[in-house]
Amino acid sequence: MTNSLRPNGQQRAPLPPAQQPARGVPGPRPPRNQSAQHATTGTTGAAAPASKPAARRDAFFDNAKYLAIVLVAMGHAWEPLKGQSRVLEAAYTVVYSFHMPAFIIISGYFSRSFDMRPDRLKRLVTGVAVPYVVFEVSYVLFKRWADGDTSLPISLLDPWYLTWFLCALFIWRLTTPLWKLVRWPLPVALVVAMLASVSPDIGDDLDLQRVLQFLPFFVLGLVMKPEHFQLARRREVRILSVPVFAAALAVGWWAVPRMNAAWFYHRDSAQELGVPWWVGPMMVFALFGCSLLLTACFYSWVPRRRTWFTGLGAGTLYGYLLHGFLVKAGTYWGWFDHARLHTPLGEIFVTLVAATVVTLLCTAPVRRVFRFAMEPSMDWAFKRDATELARERARART
């Protein structure tokens, strides 16, 4: 960067260089008018200098996010049907044991560069807080209209349905600098989750039970490095994952009448689930281990190369939040009550429809339509960073 001369002849001190993220860690999102954009679920990539080409996205993570969001949609579509099919309920249990952990770990991994820098705080507000407010209000209004239930209040302190993840991501992201200071972040996060499982007084505000019980997966993502994902993508892990998933389905089938599926939601304490308090920490630790094992098996089968759905990985938050309206509409309006849907062929049909719908909701046209709510620029609401303004003036003079 060249220096400019002041009118009095003194030379201006050079501006500090733009902060570059560590290797493998994404930085803040570039402006919309730049060609490169690294948007993940609540996380974004770094804007490259104009003189350098943008860093290429890792296809593995986009593929993993897309496949995880498809599993989320399938699980939500199975919920109204699973009560009459033990096999479907077993599959539901297995999917629920790892689909959100797999998604949360990636969210934590791409949050490693987060600090209190103004541009990253702005992205946290526009990419997480604003969509939370918009969709929390929208879901409640939709329920009032579609179901005729006016008793559900609009409360930003009590996330309803899918919006809990945005609330959790906002809190997790804000605490990221703290976890970077802790000597043993993952054990501490596990202790926090265990304590939450025996604390019914936490209540429903901000869905803190889920925030705290899912916290270890986010912290695990924060401490992971690229080579850790490479371990899960080895050929021997991919081979071993087949019997592991087969065993998980068998255990899930056995556990259907014996285990409360609410444990997989991580939204209740042990006392609220009607078991002794000491069961809570045991279940948190056991489910954490099971979820990690199945998540590693899931990652091992995620393609590493670019595929037809790789580009959809940037729109997973759109698919996640928008598909909930269709699932709820089906519940309110009796779409899942048809007898044919409660047969094996009907369950397969519902699964395919759910996968197709959430895929379409992740596409670029849908993202363009709903970007005003999901990724608003909101430049009018924020002050311009003084250092960035000075850099722009310096570039204009060169």
Rank of each mutant, 00 (worst) to 15 (best):
Q84R: 10
G346L: 09
A354W: 14
I154R: 05
L157A: 15
F349K: 13
Y265E: 07
D207Q: 14
A386D: 15
A396Q: 10
M378Y: 00
A250L: 12
R397P: 08
L293Q: 04
S97D: 09
F298D: 01
V244I: 04
M259I: 15
C290L: 07
F103C: 05
V198F: 09
F218S: 08
E79V: 08
Q11H: 13
D385S: 11
N8A: 03
T163S: 07
G324K: 13
L190C: 02
M74K: 10
C362D: 08
F285T: 07
S199V: 05
D201N: 14
W145F: 08
P14Q: 06
A129M: 03
I171C: 09
E272Y: 00
G24F: 10
Q20A: 06
V327W: 00
W380F: 07
W172E: 11
R306V: 12
V137R: 02
L240N: 05
V211W: 11
Q20D: 06
E392L: 11
K65N: 10
K383C: 13
N260D: 05
D379R: 14
W301Y: 13
K82A: 15
A22S: 14
H342E: 01
G334W: 02
P365L: 10
T316P: 00
P16L: 00
R32D: 12
C297D: 07
A54Y: 00
F372Q: 13
V242L: 12
F349L: 14
R340L: 15
P26H: 06
A247G: 06
W184D: 12
Y299G: 05
V130K: 03
R210C: 01
F372V: 15
R258Q: 14
A102M: 03
V366A: 07
L294V: 01
S107A: 11
T150D: 07
L174Y: 01
L231I: 08
I105L: 02
Y96E: 07
G330M: 10
F382C: 00
L222W: 10
P303C: 06
V140E: 00
T126E: 01
L156V: 06
F382E: 04
A396F: 09
L293P: 05
F288Q: 11
M100W: 04
A22P: 08
F165I: 01
V134T: 00
S113P: 05
T331V: 15
A314S: 06
V275E: 01
V211F: 11
D205T: 15
D337G: 05
A373I: 02
M282P: 04
Q20F: 03
P185L: 00
R258I: 12
Y109W: 01
T316L: 02
D379V: 03
R267A: 14
D115A: 05
D205Y: 13
W380L: 09
G324D: 04
R395L: 13
A55P: 05
R117A: 07
D337M: 12
G274R: 09
A355E: 04
Y161A: 11
V327N: 14
A232Y: 07
D62I: 02
L15R: 03
P200L: 14
Q84D: 08
A13R: 12
R86I: 08
H338N: 13
V133L: 06
L206H: 00
K52T: 13
A396E: 08
A146G: 05
K122I: 08
S199D: 04
N3H: 09
V87H: 15
A261I: 14
F61E: 12
T175P: 11
A355D: 02
V128S: 04
K65R: 15
M116A: 14
F298C: 00
Y109P: 10
R144A: 15
E392K: 09
H38P: 14
T163L: 03
